[in-house]
Structures are given as structure tokens and as C-alpha cells.
């Protein structure tokens, strides 16, 4: 049976999934924390994906996405290295070809993708600030001592959500602490936060965009049912959270790889042995000019796989 592997390495989590030709995951998709060490996370993710894979699957293509897509692409030997917008759109379209709006909120990015007739016509990402993304929710859950998985459930128990400022995390946190010290219940505060984040997203990232149903909500934050409901209330329409909402980027990357391989070429995928290979990264500062670019090298057993980080291109090497 043919399979395609997709790897999505984000700021906070790393996702690995193997799909069949129809785009259905084979085995359980892997969703782990990147913990600032993408190389380790990619290897661990690939190893976990292998463990769970049904027998007799032959990987015919590999795709990567996410902010570490180039690194991941070099490591696993990717056929398609694509940006997250395209990957998320492709995955959502496979699920529901009539989708008109995709809300995606991850660890540090939030994006809106507007589609019409199966085509991306517009998109936007948060610009200079990561207010309202997963990292902030994580931090607040930790501060309140609530596991992030229960965050959304608690929000639904609120009776009167309090008003929290949403456009800046510093303002939001200070509002939350103020209300907490006044004696409001944790549920009301969390519900207030969910509403603030949805409000901020709609007036900031989605500014000026026409949001039409069907709306699909994906990315790690979509696990938070409190935010889903906040979006439904604000938009006045149903917001769908797909079953594999947190690995949609990886599914999209695998679909893009499958698309690439249609002409029958041979995959560059190094195989699941990537998990045991030795990867080292090192860096140095180029002193060729005042830019002092920080150059990163990725090696495997002493062999240079890739080098990047320079503005002028004199160091750039990407093994093909």
C-alpha cells in the first residue's frame, strides 16, 4: 500500500502523519512538543509514526511545512517543502471542498484563509504580535494551575464571562490578574479570556475579510472548546473543528507531496531510519561584511546536508 508522510514543525509542537492516497491518516497521527529542539522532535516524531504504522506501507512521498520546514525537509528528504497557509488550505479542502473560511491558530501564528470555489483567494497572518495564540493560552493555563486540556471545558461552565482586554497579552494578563484578585471565579475569567481572544482575532487578523460559512477551525488551539464557542457566538454561524484539527498542516504537507509525486518520480525520503541517524547543527557568524549573518550548518555523520542564514548567498548549500 502506498503512503505519504507529512511533517509539520511549528514553534511549539511537531506533527507527523502518514496518509493513504485519499488523505486518510494511517495509524495515529503524532503530536508532540518541539521544546525548542526541532531536530530531536522531528526524529522522535518520525520514530513514533513508524511504531504505529500498519504493516506493508511503502512511503512514496514526503512533505514538510511549518516554520522549520526547510530543516525538516533536509533531514527527512522531502519532495515538497511548502508554507503553512497552502498546507492548511489543501488539508481543509480535502475534508470539505466547499469550505469558505479557515481559522487556524497555532503556537505563535494565527491565520485566516479565505477560499471561494475551492481556491484560496485571500489570507492574513498575525503581523508583529503573537497575542491570542497558543503560547499565551499555555502560559495562562500554567499560571492558573489548570491543565491546558481542561481549559475549554472550564470556560463553558462560566456564568458571567468577565471582560478581558484582548489585543495585547500584557494587557490581557494584567486584566486577568486584576479580576482574579477581585474574586471572580476561574471559570468566568477563562471564559472572558476565550472571548477576548476570539474578538482580537476577528478585529486584527481577520480585519476587513468577509467570513462566510462553512468555517473550519484548526490548529492546536481548536482543541479549546471555549474558543470554538466564542467564535460561534461572535460569527453567528457554526464553526467546525475537524477530527484531526491539530495535524491538518502535516496532512496538507503529505497531500502536497502526493500531488508532487503524481508524475511517478522517485521519492527523496530517506526512510524511517532518519530517526536513528546522527544529525548535528552548528553555527558561526560570517565576518564578510557588517551584516554579520548567523550561518547554520546541518550535518549528518560529518557530511554537510545544508547551510543557510546568509543574506548574500555565499554560504548557502541545500542538498538536493
Amino acid at each position: 500500500m502506498k503512503g505519504y508522510i507529512g511533517v509539520d514543525v511549528g514553534s511549539v509542537t511537531t506533527k507527523v502523519v502518514v496518509i493513504d492516497e485519499e488523505g486518510n491518516p494511517l495509524g495515529t497521527p503524532v503530536y508532540i512538543r518541539t521544546q525548542g529542539q526541532p531536530i530531536k522532535a522531528i526524529q522522535q516524531g518520525v520514530a513514533m509514526a513508524r511504531e504505529d504504522l500498519p504493516k506493508g506501507i511503502e512511503i512514496r512521498g514526503a512533505g514538510t511545512t511549518g516554520s522549520a520546514r526547510y530543516l525538516a525537509g533536509v533531514m527527512i528528504g522531502a519532495d515538497a517543502i511548502r508554507n503553512e497557509i497552502t498546507a492548511h488550505a489543501v488539508a481543509a479542502l480535502r475534508l470539505d471542498p466547499s469550505v469558505n473560511t479557515i481559522i487556524e491558530i497555532g503556537g505563535q501564528d494565527s491565520k485566516i484563509i479565505i477560499l471561494r470555489n475551492g481556491l484560496v483567494v485571500d489570507f492574513a497572518m498575525n503581523t508583529v504580535c503573537a497575542a491570542g495564540t497558543g503560547s499565551f493560552l499555555d502560559r495562562q493555563a500554567e499560571r492558573l494551575g489548570i491543565p491546558i486540556e481542561q481549559f475549554g471545558e472550564l470556560a463553558l461552565k462560566a456564568k458571567t464571562p468577565v471582560r478581558i482586554a484582548g489585543r495585547c497579552t500584557v494587557f490581557a494578563e494584567s486584566d486577568m490578574i486584576h479580576k482574579q484578585q477581585m474574586g471572580f471565579s476561574v471559570e468566568d475569567i477563562i471564559a472572558g479570556l476565550c472571548e477576548a481572544l476570539a474578538r482580537n482575532y476577528l478585529s486584527n487578523v481577520a480585519k476587513g475579510k468577509k467570513i462566510l460559512p462553512p468555517v473550519i477551525f484548526q490548529g492546536g488551539v481548536a482543541a479549546n472548546i471555549g474558543i470554538k464557542y466564542a467564535f460561534q457566538r461572535a460569527l453567528g454561524c457554526e464553526v467546525l473543528v475537524p477530527p484531526y484539527h491539530n495535524v491538518m498542516g502535516a496532512i496538507g504537507a503529505a497531500l502536497l507531496a502526493a500531488e508532487q509525486m503524481r508524475d511517478g518520480r522517485k521519492t527523496r525520503f530517506r526512510g524511517f531510519e532518519v530517526a536513528e541517524m546522527n544529525f548535528e547543527s552548528s553555527s558561526f557568524e560570517c565576518r564578510g561584511c557588517s551584516n554579520r549573518c548567523e550561518i547554520v550548518e546541518i550535518k549528518s555523520d560529518g557530511k554537510l546536508l545544508a547551510r543557510w542564514g546568509d543574506r548574500c548567498g555565499k554560504w548557502e548549500v541545500i542538498e538536493r
Partner: peptide
Amino acid sequence: LTRLEAFVDLLQRR
């Protein structure tokens, strides 16, 4: 780069 790539993808598919 991510935004530019996505934009070019959008234009290409269009």
C-alpha cells in the same frame, strides 16, 4: 518568506 510563498501559491493557483 512564509507569507510570500503562500501569496505566490495563491496567485499561481488563481
